[in-house]
Design a protein around this nucleic acid. Sequence first.
RNA 1: GGCCCUAUCGUCUAACGGUUAGGACGGAGGCUUUUCAAGCCUUAAAUCGGAGUUCGAUUCUCCGUAGGGUCACCA
Length: 497
Amino acid sequence: MNQKIVTRFAPSPTGYLHVGGLRTALYAYLVATKSQGDFILRIEDTDRERYVADGIQNILESLTWAHITPNQGVRLENGTIINSGPAGSYIQSERLPIYKKYVEELIAKSHAYYCFCTPERLEEVRNYQQEHKLPPGYDGHCLHLDPQEIENRIRANERHVVRLHMPDSGETKWDDVIRGEVSFKNSEVDDQVLLKSDGYPTYHLAVVVDDHEMNVTHVIRGEEWISSTPKHLKLYEYFGWTPPAFAHLPLLLNSDKSKLSKRQGDVAVLDYKTKGYLPEALINFVAFLGWNPGTEQELFTLNELVAIFSLAKVNKAGAVFNIEKLDWFNREYLKKLPPEDLVDYMLTYLPENYREVRDREFLLRLAPLLLERISKGSDLSEMYTAGELDFYFENPSYDASLLLWKKLSDTNESRELVKKHLSEIAKILMSEPHSNDPEKIKSYLWHYAETNGKGEVLWPLRVALSGKEKSPDPFVLIALLGQNESITRINSAIALL
RNA sequence: GGCCCUAUCGUCUAACGGUUAGGACGGAGGCUUUUCAAGCCUUAAAUCGGAGUUCGAUUCUCCGUAGGGUCACCA
């Protein structure tokens, strides 16, 4: 691929970055990076009412966490927000004069016109159209205003907007990278507002002007933009610009197939971070929502995705965001974590004081045991809350009857038998010369268990060590706890019986 | 309602117009086993419906149906 591709991700800072946005950003990043082109981050903050103060921060944090980093426009460098590139500012609210200039050009060419209609009148028009089942859209009321009247009303400071003048015949079509040819009749496209009465551009104007000024070659965005693409195409035509390629991505869906929303689970990227999903897992998962490599490989690093990704293999139908599959990806990536990282990961989901109780060596042994039983960090927090983790850090307390294997009835004879086994095991553990050699100990214990009945020996031993009905096996626990602590726990069990 | 988009297992998806319609997640069963987890093996599960084109449609066309998107001085 020798064409240098320029893509952009252009969120508006109205809250948090959600996973759908993450996928859009990912695809745009992959396509640009693959061609060694530019991936721009632009902030579309032309709606002052929905503006959220730390919106930009949240977007950048989310992308940085996911390793999707723009090389132009707004980005994070050493924790501070920078905004730079050949096009000047990449925050639209700082580009107002540019939009104004282009709007004036459009008006001069009669491709746009002033409109003085009040919100109330527009509301009435809408209601009328709805009642009479007419196609919706602006009725052209201000299209043919007398130039002198326009001038007077503007001079009188009457509130006004500027609208795009769509032709009433013909059609607008384009060859969508993902969907093939899409076309709309011009008469069915609304005379969209381009410049609002507060002097800010609408999305439709700003996106076209900026994509052009920033040399964007591929517009990669969600399917919800399909129906406004004709307006954008008309603007390119009116300005005499070559339009970029358009790729409209399939939507991400809730399990009921509606557009992915907060109601049915987490949608914010940082929520997934908080829950303990690894960025590699989220990225890998989200990459597969609407795309596949055409092979049976499912695990890809970001760089591998860069190498193999292609818009040509993106499919058209919406994709349900299936958290179970995400969990699987996360488990796969958890398995790949180096031991030290695993400990740090585990520790962030356990109470502070837990790291004081045990030394690093112990935690290094513990982490794989725990991580094998969860999908994500928040599962650990839940296990802790449920009291399932305490025995790793302190002597467990439990009912003596738990020490009896299911095949033994709770009689004095049984208790004596268990007591005998535990005493024998304690002896084995205390005896030299196999101290501190888990493998040696295991072979001795295994031998004892095989000759005396595995269930009758191993079950009470495991319970003595864990105090739980379910836990890792006793050999693993002895290796984890060490000989001395194991003996202590066994003796406590004997005392219980 | 107008316009637009979409349609393969429950979910993500694969299949030059010719396959026993494949894989993954999840499910079920089994092996292993003192319990749990992991691992391994096995298994159930899909081409929305109807026409047409064709020797042959999951695949191409049309019509239905269903779902979704969009119809703001929001993006």
